[in-house]
């Protein structure tokens, strides 16, 4: 996972942004304050406003309230420490690194990328591709979004900018056929990684979800063990419906990781906690800008640290 390490230094810098928006309020809310019912209510409001979700928020706040009433917790600082602990235990040890094909297999690693319309799949793929390229891997793209107008061209433009090749089909053609061709091409050219872009689809569209399943099957048939990674791209501004997305895409194509896009706005991204509670799917990357280098591996430890840590200055 050298490529992850190589950009690890950027994690903190990017998370600083999240921290400022997410927990900036919390820090000023809690630190140096005496704990009382009013402060607990404000804490609840903060968590809910960060899209953490009612259920998860209530569970967290309940713990605080009990500790407060039994006298175990008296200051905002203690609450901060408690929440940090809670959130840390919520993320079990999971492999958040990208999964690759066995080194000895000589087969390409296939990454299938899916998500709802407008989540940011194509941009996220550009970021992923750049990361992989920077770590010295050869990458081939498969443009399986044959539905949306301009989608193939959009991926093509990125591929030109990033200097990788792209396998494409006809607009309106069968996306599974493109996946088929892309697998063939990846095998023939002996690339390290094949990244498949798919059309945005709402998780409620049964037939489109089946189509996605078909693409996955094609890949599995062509390249045993593949797709090695199925990433769900989630828009960080999404509310609780993100949990439904994770569940439904998980059902259709066994999602192995989440790419949390658009974390550079004021959206707090707290929904990943709710998603983790509901599905256990790990978040693997976060997208924090429009440029291909605006990507970071998601590390819950660092994430939580960054959320709650106090700046030195």
């Amino acid at each position: 996972m050298s490529f992850l390490k190589s950009i690890f230094g950027k994690v903190k810098q990017g998370l600083a942004k999240t921290r400022d928006t997410f927990i900036g309020g919390l820090r000023s809310l809690l630190l140096g304050k005496r704990l009382d019912e009013d402060l607990i209510r404000q804490l609840e409001a903060k968590l809910i406003s960060a899209d953490v979700g009612v259920k998860t928020t209530m569970r967290l706040v309940k713990g605080v309230r009990e500790a407060y009433r039994s006298g175990k917790m008296q200051t905002g600082d203690e609450v901060l420490a408690y929440l940090k602990d809670e959130l840390k235990t919520m993320w079990p040890e999971q492999d958040r690194a990208l999964r690759f094909a066995d080194a000895g297999s000589g087969k390409p690693t296939v990454i299938l990328v899916a998500g709802v319309n407008g989540a940011g799949k194509t941009t996220s793929i550009a970021k992923l591709t750049k990361s992989l390229r920077d770590s010295g891997k050869t990458v081939l793209l498969g443009a399986c979004d044959t539905f949306r107008a301009g989608a193939v061209r959009q991926l093509e433009i990125w591929s030109e900018r990033l200097g990788v090749e792209v396998v494409k089909g006809q607009q309106g053609g069968d996306p599974a056929a493109v996946a088929f061709d892309a697998c063939d091409a990846a095998l023939a050219r002996g690339v390290d990684v094949l990244v498949l872009d798919t059309a945005g689809r709402l998780h409620t569209q049964e037939s489109l979800m089946r189509e996605l399943g078909k693409i996955r099957e094609i890949v599995a048939r062509k390249i045993p063990g593949g797709p090695h990674e199925t990433l769900l791209v989630l828009d960080a501004t999404t509310g609780q419906n993100a949990v439904r997305q994770a569940e439904e895409f998980g059902r259709a194509v066994t999602v192995t990781g989440i790419f949390l896009a658009k974390l550079d706005g004021t959206a707090k991204g707290g929904v990943v906690i709710a998603i983790h509670d509901a599905t256990g799917i790990p978040v693997k990357f976060v997208g924090v800008g429009e440029r291909p280098e605006d990507v970071q591996p998601f590390d819950p430890e660092a994430f939580v640290e960054a959320l709650f840590e106090v700046d030195q200055d």
């Binding site: 809910i48 406003s49 960060a50 899209d51 709802v116 407008g118 828009d235 501004t237 999404t238 509310g239 609780q240 419906n241 993100a242 706005g265 004021t266 959206a267 707090k268 929904v271």
Partner: peptide, 12 residues
């Protein structure tokens, strides 16, 4: 506006 937007809809 995306109908699936969460709490941040208020800010944007």
């Amino acid at each position: 506006v995306d109908a699936m937007t969460g709490q941040d809809a208020v800010n944007s």
